[in-house]
Simulated scan of single mutants.
Amino acid sequence: MNLDAAINHLKVFLKWLDEYRDQGFESALVTGKEVAEEIGLSEIVFKSTRQRRKRRHFGYEATDDTPELSPKDRFKISYFYVVVDKIRTSCEPRFEALKCHENNFGFLYDIMNLSSTMSEKELLNNCKDLQVTLSIVNNHDIDGVDLFEELKLFSSVLVEVEAQQKKKRNK
């Protein structure tokens, strides 16, 4: 799979997840009712709990007017939102790591079309950035200028080989 496509799919998924958090509770209830019917449960019932009252001390005059939530709303807040938010927060670091990887190494994924998709200046800048990324203090894993020269040469050779193979297939 192309890295750009994966990032776009993740963006769409996160957008869908945000919309689902806002509007998906009712559809989740419908699905839950269908599953309950399949396994033989007649009805989904949200259990209600009694409202707890705080003890008030002598000088305390104000009453705690916390709104009484329906069992359905309490379930929505304490379970549905929590689950959807956990999914979202667990996806975000992975998504950020994938974007970081794509920023550093993305230009290497399409070597066949390297010369046609980016200018030599862009390619040289990407190679130098990769050198900096893979460096620790003064130790370099790669030399950006050498990588640039090798990629230019390698991509042109690949294009020629592909053209020759295409000619052979057409004969």
Rank of each mutant, 00 (worst) to 15 (best):
F46N: 09
V145K: 15
D64T: 14
L108P: 03
R74T: 01
P67H: 10
E162K: 06
G106Q: 01
D146Q: 11
G144F: 00
E120N: 15
L147G: 01
L14Y: 08
R53H: 14
D110T: 06
N139T: 11
F25Y: 09
S119Q: 11
R52T: 11
Q23K: 13
A163K: 12
E38K: 13
L10A: 06
F58P: 04
K99Q: 05
L130S: 02
I39T: 04
K152I: 06
E102G: 01
E68F: 03
A36C: 12
D110Y: 02
T49Y: 15
T63G: 00
F58R: 06
L114W: 01
T66Q: 09
F154L: 15
D4I: 11
I77V: 12
R52F: 07
A5F: 15
L124G: 03
C100H: 09
K128T: 12
K128Q: 11
N8Y: 03
Y81E: 13
E162N: 09
K15R: 06
A28V: 08
L147A: 03
S116E: 05
S115Q: 11
D4A: 11
V30T: 11
D73Y: 12
N113K: 13
C127K: 00
P71W: 10
L41H: 13
E150D: 12
V161C: 14
D65F: 07
R55M: 08
F80D: 03
M112Y: 09
D4Q: 10
K166E: 06
M118E: 08
E122V: 05
K121V: 08
E120D: 10
R94G: 06
E149V: 15
L134P: 00
V159A: 00
F107W: 02
G59E: 08
F25W: 05
S78A: 07
R56I: 05
C127P: 01
M118C: 11
L10S: 04
Q51W: 08
L3V: 04
F154W: 13
A5T: 10
E122H: 07
E120G: 14
V82I: 11
K152E: 05
E26G: 01
D65L: 05
S42Y: 14
C91D: 03
D141S: 04
W16I: 14
F46L: 01
E162H: 07
I39L: 07
I111H: 06
K99P: 01
S119H: 08
N103K: 15
K15P: 05
H9D: 04
D4W: 08
L69Q: 04
Q51P: 00
I7W: 02
G24K: 00
E26S: 09
V83W: 15
K121Q: 13
F58M: 08
F80A: 03
D141M: 07
D22S: 13
H57V: 08
R56C: 06
F75H: 02
N138M: 07
L98E: 04
V82T: 09
Q165L: 08
N113C: 09
D18C: 00
N103F: 07
K121N: 15
H57K: 08
H57A: 07
R52V: 13
L98S: 00
K11M: 14
D73W: 12
E160D: 10
A62S: 01
S42M: 12
D22N: 15
L153V: 04
L17S: 07
E102Y: 01
N2K: 13
E68L: 07
D141T: 06
P93R: 02
N126P: 01
